[in-house]
């Protein structure tokens, strides 16, 4: 019957040449035996629709052939969780920031936006997507090849068998604030306070006895804001030294201080804060050009400042959510 021949041909297409003839002959004998038995029971030949039902019950030709093939994989179950973990890290640390920087530049940098949308917004998005997809494709492709090679090496070298329990990382305590980092934070903040109060309390800053930097009158706001923030952070670090554990209120304070610090920094970048600079033996027009260049580059860094601020806020929000979920009772 032609339908059976077509089915066997479709199965045979996926089978290795050396075994194909043998497997198809055996499968053919089995199908014919089943049909002959059905026909003997019914006392008539099966219709084409009935043969079709018999073949459908046996499964798709590819699946049937697949059962005869050796189990193969590019990345095995041992390495796959590591592969997925690395892909997540790449997405989190490279691809998502890449998108955020593009979004930040398009939102806050008129020059970049004008360059990108010179023809149309559609062209800008198409170009971004092409570039993003190309980058993601190469990164994922390279990682996949690297893991496939590792998988083959693992099959030969068995490096999963060579491990030592004593070399496993120590038990993670995500709510512990290491005293070392609190000490460093306290020292850095105290040094910053002394330096800030000693040298930057006035909008006229002298470097040595020759260079004079004039700051915008707005500077006084930045001065007091950063000074208060540093004092609060120093007090926070001291408290963490005494009781080195994250609590929801501490996490909320850290979110507030990081968000304030990031907002102030972004404002500073956009504030055209440098009013002038006086350097001996440098002409006034050249000094004005330096002032303009510094202000221009600070403004250009504004999108990057926004991205850094958002990342900091996201990390802090994640910490608060984690702490909240830990304190919630487990439902039955």
């Amino acid at each position: 019957m032609e339908l059976i021949e077509r089915y066997l041909q479709a199965v045979g297409f996926w089978l290795p040449r050396q075994q194909k003839h043998d497997i198809i002959a055996e499968l053919s004998a089995d199908i014919h035996a089943q049909i002959e038995e059905r026909e003997a029971g019914l006392g008539r030949k099966l219709t084409e629709a009935e043969v079709e039902t018999v073949l459908k019950q046996r499964g798709h030709p590819l699946l049937v052939a697949n059962r005869f093939l050796p189990q193969e994989h590019l990345i095995g179950p041992g390495l796959f969780p590591v592969y997925r973990f690395v892909l997540k890290i790449v997405a989190l640390c490279y691809l998502i920031p890449w998108l955020l920087v593009w979004g930040g530049l398009m939102t806050f940098s008129p020059v970049y936006r004008a360059q990108q949308t010179s023809s149309s917004w559609f062209a800008a998005i198409a170009s971004m997507w092409g570039s993003f997809f190309g980058t993601a494709f190469v990164v994922v492709g390279v990682l996949t090849i690297a893991f496939a090679v590792l998988e083959r090496m693992q099959n030969r070298l068995h490096f999963f068998d060579r491990w030592n329990p004593s070399k496993l990382p120590p038990v993670r305590k995500p709510n512990l604030i290491p005293r070392g980092s609190s000490s460093v934070e306290l020292a850095v903040n105290l040094l910053f306070i002394v330096w800030w109060a000693a040298y930057l309390h006035s909008p006229l800053v002298r470097i040595g006895s020759t260079v004079e930097i004039s700051l915008n009158p707005q500077w006084i706001w930045f001065f007091w804001s950063y000074l208060l923030l540093a004092l609060a952070n120093a007090a926070f670090a001291a408290a963490n030294l005494m009781h080195p554990f994250w609590t929801p209120s501490r996490a909320a304070f850290r979110l507030l201080s990081d968000a304030l610090g990031a907002a102030l920094f972004c404002w500073l970048l956009k504030a055209t804060i440098l009013a002038g600079i006086a350097i001996p033996n440098v002409a006034s027009d050249k000094a004005a050009a330096i002032t303009h260049a510094v202000n221009y580059w600070m403004a250009t860094l504004f999108p990057a400042g926004i991205v850094v601020g958002l990342v900091l806020v996201a990390i802090n929000v994640y910490r608060i959510v984690r702490l909240q979920s830990e304190t919630e009772p487990v439902s039955a």
Binding site: I23, E26, L27, D30, R58, L63, V64, R67, F68
Partner: peptide, 8 residues
């Protein structure tokens, strides 16, 4: 036992 399991 289905034939897809038996023959392999």
């Amino acid at each position: 036992i289905d034939e897809g399991t038996l023959y392999p």
